[in-house]
Computed example of a mutant assay.
Amino acid sequence: MKQHKLVKPLLVGSVLFSFVAAESAIAATEWNVSLWGKRRAFTEHVEKLAEVVEQKSNGEFKLSISYGGLSKNKENLDGISFGAFEMAQFCAGYHRDKNPSITVLELPFLGVQSLEQEIALSQSIYQHPAVVKDLARWNATLLMPSPLPQYNIAGVGDAPKSMADFEGIRVRATGGIGEAMSAVGAVPTSMSATEVRQSLDAGVIGAVAFAPHAHMAFGTVETAKWWTTNLNPGTVNCPVVVNTDALNELSDANRKILLDAVAPALQHYVDYYNDKTMSAWGPKLDEKGIERISFSDAELAQFRETVAGPAKQAWIEDMTAKGLPAQELVSLVESQL
C-alpha cells in the first residue's frame, strides 16, 4: 500500500508536467526568416526585429533568421507565396514583373536625401491600395523597408572622368539605376549581390552599382580601383514581407508585438548605418587606395535631364498598361520629395 501511494502522486505529477509542457509548445510561435549573404547593415533591422519580438513576447514568439539556407534571394517572394517561410527580404529590381507597383521607388534621380526620407517614402507607397493588392498576389504583406542611401559605382580598369567614359562598361545595376547607366552608354547587367565579386574578378562586369555597405559586405571594395562619389543615380527598394496567412494566424498579442517592433527596428537600422557603415566607408577607400571620381554640376544636371524625365514617363506608360494607377503613384512619391 505504501508503494502504491508513492507511485500515484508521481504518475499524476508526470502527467501534469507533460500537459503543461505540451501546452507551452503549442503556445510558442517560431517564424522562419529568409535573408541572404551574411549579417550586415542591410539586415540589421531584421535582426533587431527578432530581438524585440522575442523580448516583448517573453520568448513565446521567435524569428529564426537564415542567411541563404531557406531560399535563393531572387526566389524569396515565391517562397513567401506558398508559405515555405513566414518572413523574407527581397529587392524589387530582382523581379520587376512580380512587384511592378513598388518599382516606382527605384526610378532614377528621385532626389531622396536621407534614410529617414527613404523610410517615409517607402511606407507611404506600401500602404497604397494598389500596392497592397499587387503584393497580395503573392500572399505577401509588406512589413517594412530596408532603406538604402543613394548608390554609386565602383569599378576596375580606366576610371570614367566624364559621362561619356561610361560607354561600353558592363555595370551590375538593377531597376532605375540600370536605366540610368544605359542612358549614358553603359551596359547594365542584373545579377544577385552574391554573384558580383566573382563576376568582377572574372571580368564579366567592369563596375558595380551598390550602396557603401554592400561594396564592403560583398567584397567589391577589395577589387575596385575607382569610386564615383556623387553620381547618385538612385537606389533600390528592398522590402521585408510576411506571409499574409501567417500574419493573420498570429495571436492578437503577437501580431501587435510584431507590428510595434517595426519602428524601433528601423531606428536601429538608421543609427547603425549612419554611425558604423558610413564612418567606415571613407577609411576603407583610403586603405584600398581607391580613386574618388567626382563629376561637375553641369555633367550631373545633363545626366539627370537625359535620364530622369524619360524614365519616369516610360514607367508611367508601362505601368498604366498593366492596370496600375501609375501617375497616382508617381505623384505620391513626388509629393514627399
Rank of each mutant, 00 (worst) to 15 (best):
K72E: 11
E299I: 02
A140T: 08
E23F: 10
A186G: 02
E75W: 00
T320F: 07
G168S: 11
V46T: 12
L329N: 01
A253K: 15
T220E: 09
K322C: 04
Q3S: 12
F210W: 03
A308T: 09
M163E: 03
L142F: 07
S190N: 13
H45R: 13
P264T: 06
F17S: 09
G185A: 07
E222M: 00
S24G: 08
W281G: 05
G176H: 00
P283G: 08
Y272T: 12
P325W: 06
L250F: 14
T223V: 10
A321C: 03
K284H: 11
H128D: 11
E106H: 08
G155T: 12
S57Q: 06
L10S: 01
F166T: 00
A92I: 09
N152S: 13
G59A: 03
E60P: 12
A28L: 11
Y67A: 03
S182N: 13
V46H: 02
G203H: 03
L63P: 05
D134I: 11
A186P: 00
V12P: 09
V46N: 08
K276W: 13
F295Y: 15
S294L: 10
A301Y: 03
S335D: 04
G176L: 04
A253M: 06
S101H: 10
S279R: 08
A321S: 14
V330C: 00
L247I: 13
K276H: 14
G282P: 05
G69S: 13
G309I: 01
A207I: 09
V132F: 01
R292N: 06
T220S: 12
S64M: 06
Q198D: 14
F82N: 09
A41T: 15
A159K: 09
E334R: 01
G79P: 03
V187C: 04
L250Y: 14
E23C: 08
V262C: 08
G176Y: 08
E47K: 06
H95Q: 10
S279N: 08
A173V: 00
E60D: 12
H45N: 07
S57D: 06
S331E: 15
M87T: 04
F295W: 15
I169M: 11
G219C: 01
I290H: 04
A224E: 02
A211L: 05
A183Q: 04
Q313A: 10
G93Q: 01
S57C: 06
K276T: 15
V12Q: 14
R137L: 15
A21M: 11
L10K: 08
V221H: 11
G69R: 07
A224D: 00
V187L: 11
A314N: 07
L329S: 05
D275A: 14
P233A: 08
H215R: 04
S162H: 12
Q3W: 15
D297H: 08
E222F: 03
G309D: 04
